[in-house]
Structures are given as C-alpha cells and as structure tokens.
Design a protein around this nucleic acid. Structure first.
Lengths: 217, 217
DNA sequence: GAGGATAGATACATGCTGGTGTCTATGTTG
DNA sequence: CAACATAGACACCAGCATGTATCTATCCTC
C-alpha cells in the first residue's frame, strides 16, 4: 500500500554518494559504536571534497546515526540495551495508533487487510524456502505496512527511523532463530485477524505479546 | 521532571545564528508557507558566507520546516489541515504510550503526578492572571511533561517536533479562546486523576476528548 | 640521578570563506 | 511558437583560520 511520504532529499550526486556510503558503513556494523572518524576519510574514499561529506554527516546526525563533535569528528552513536526498550515501546505505540486510525475509516479496511495478507504470504514463502534473511526483511515490511495503513506521514517517517535503529541493534545481537519462524507467522496472522474484526484492544495485546516474544525474550 | 535528551547540536557560531534566525522567521509565520527564498538572503542578512546557512537549512529540512529544492532554493513547508489531524493523532499515541510506560514503573508515579500537579498550578496562575499567551505555553509544557514522564528519549524528541509543528499551525489559526480556559484546566486535572489511579484506558479516552475539544472543534 | 609535572610544539580535524561550474527558470528575438 | 540569451541559485572545491588532543623536551622536586 504505497502512501506518499516526503521523497529522499537529493542534495547532489556527491553528497548523496557520501550519504549512502557513510550510512552503509554505520548500518552494516563495520564501524563499532563510539568509533570516531573524520570527514576527510569519507572524502578521500570517494575522491570528493569535504563539503558534500559534511552535508551527509549533518543528515546522518539528524537521523541519530552520527553525533558530530565540534572540532573533533563524528562518532557512531552507540545503541544501548535501554534504548532497545525505548524503540520497542515507540514501535508499539505507532503501530497501535495506525490500526486505530485505520479502523476509523472502514472503507479502507478491506484493501489494508488484503495488503497485509499479501505481505504475510510473501513472508511465508521465505520461511518455506528457509531464507532467514529474506524472512527478516519481510517481517520489517509487514510491520511497516501496518503503519502505512494508518496513512499518517509523520508517524510513517518516525517509524522508519525506529526500524533503522532496531536493525542496528539486531546486527549486534542474534538474528531470527529458525524455530521461531512458524510462531511469528501465526502471530502475524492473528494480528491481521484482530484488524479485520475491528478489535483494537485485541490488536494491542497481540502486538505486545508478539514483540515481547521476538525481541524481549 | 528533567530527563536527558540529546543536546542541541552546536555546529559553530555562524551556523547556529543562521539556524536560529531562519527558524524564527519560519516559526513566526512571517514567511508564508510555500515561500521560496535563498541561502544568499540569510547569508547577507547575517553577514556570513553561504556555507553555514546551508548547514542551517539542512538541519531545518530534517525538522521538516524547510524543503530544499536543488538549484532553486528553500521553500517553507506549508502546514495543511490534513496534517493537523496527523499531528494530533501522533500526539495522542505518544502521550498514551508515555502514560502506559509510566504506569509500569509504580515507584516513579508519585513524583510524576506531583510534577504534573505543579505544572497545572502554574497554568492555573496564568489563567487567573488572564495571560492567554503564557497559558498556551503552560499548556504545551503540561503535555510535554506527560511525555517526559514516559522516560523514552525517542518519543520525547519526536513529540517535540510535533509540538513545534502544531505551533506553526496554531499561528495561522486562532489562539486559545479565553472561555475555554476553565475547561482545559478541568480536563488537565482529570488527566492527572486517571494517571494517579493507574487508569490507562481512562487516560486515553480523556486525552482524546481533551484534544478533540481544543483543536478539532 | 630518577620521576613526574608542565610548557611548547606538532598533527589533525573542523568552521568558514571566496570562487567556479552547472543547472533551472525566465525573458527575448526571429 | 521555438530557439537563444540571461540572470539567479545551488553544488562543489581548495584553502585559511581556529580549536583540540597528543607528543616531547625541559624543569623542578626528592
């Protein structure tokens, strides 16, 4: 269910390349949290000036991936266990709010449910194929579609930053364990059922149980 | 109830001045939504180069106050009525989540309640003095303290951007009308009561009624 | 003479400046 | 109406000034 959000800012080719490269370095986990590096490193790597790199750093600072220290450099913002709790709480709140709003527009409900069922089928296929990585991606996509169904640009964008942050945390922890895959699929189906039934309360409890089971075990 | 969040980034004196000036121009409503202006204008106004202005623009773009158009300039992001609904929904979700989490840490509850009661007393004083502007500020502060009580850095920051956005919308609409002041105070007291009683459901319904009454009338 | 503190020097990274090339939109001319 | 010229604005670059942390050599104390 595509819903219009702000497009990615296009600040120029060099700035975008610097942004993509730096973000990849941070999100891939190659740079440990707290690692200090400089604009010059990225600039040299890409063969560009420091100016576009600086722009990229500022954008990444706005996304909370970097923290710029005056006259020192940029540190990779570390993700802490306490923050994990924060991310999960925020995700819960956003998803619940999205469902709440969706249920207030009954005419949009069938399409949203169909969209979620399609996403679930894709995830099921990845599970059958034993592709854990694709499964995890489909999992993110499923929850993202729940939020998108709420049609609130602000929360959609905020949720995207949360997902990114969680991805960084999971990178350092273990990925999804194969034996939990069937449970995840079953719980996703249950989430869809509560939405279909207009059971806002039931969705909230099911979602909390779901997230608890996956990430807080 | 102070709770640590990220400090404002300090990118240098010139960049900060450019940031403050531009933000003031946008938030004060002097520049209408959709107005196009250039880096050079601000740079000339402050007597600095375009580079720090560019940094300020990027920060403001991250805050959704500006939209930078390549090779064209910066437009003031307009606030639309549909977005008003989005902002209110998001605010609701965040405040409810904060209370939910607060109620999960009973030992923090008394201090939080006392904090909210103090904020309410201040607001009451402004109402008695007939200072509508100070009343509105105290109102923002009250709701901000509810969110702060949830002690979730991520949602606290997000909520701050929401409040800013709402401020811009209210700037174009009417401010708080004096005859609604007593009702607002009564509803705030009721919100505190539901929190004190651990009535999460009651808080949600009371909050929704409260926000509906103020902003969606 | 040994050890530690301190002042100077060094390396490094940022913050900002001025300027160049390029792109977009606008106005002009045939 | 189309092609061209023009003006405005950005995207980027190279360089200078400034600030910070580190390293070193000297000095003082014991």
């Amino acid at each position: 269910m595509p819903y219009p959000t702000s497009p990615e800012p296009d600040a120029g080719p060099a700035a975008d390349r610097a942004y993509d490269l730096t973000k990849k370095l941070v999100l891939s986990g190659e740079l440990p949290g707290g690692h200090l590096f400089s604009e010059g490193e990225i600039a040299g790597l890409l063969g560009v000036s420091r100016t576009p790199v600086r722009e990229a750093f500022l954008r990444l600072q706005a996304e909370e991936l970097l923290r710029l220290i005056p006259k020192r450099g940029a540190v990779v913002v570390p993700v802490s266990p306490e923050e994990a709790e924060d991310v999960l709480d925020a995700r819960e709140a956003i998803e619940i709010a999205a469902v709440r709003r969706l249920l207030h527009s009954p005419d949009l409900l069938p399409a949203a449910v169909a969209d979620l069922q399609a996403a679930l089928r894709i995830q099921q296929a990845h599970a059958d194929a034993g592709d854990v990585h694709a499964f995890a991606e489909a999992d993110e996509d499923f929850h993202g579609r729940i939020v998108a169904a709420g049609r609130n640009c602000l929360t959609i964008r905020f949720y995207a930053t949360l997902a990114e942050r969680q991805q960084r945390m999971s990178m350092r922890a273990l990925g999804p364990v194969p034996e939990r895959l069937p449970g995840v699929l079953r719980e996703h189906a249950e989430l869809i059922a509560t939405i279909e039934n207009g059971d806002e309360q039931g969705f909230g409890t099911a979602l909390r149980a779901h997230l608890d089971g996956i990430h807080r075990s």
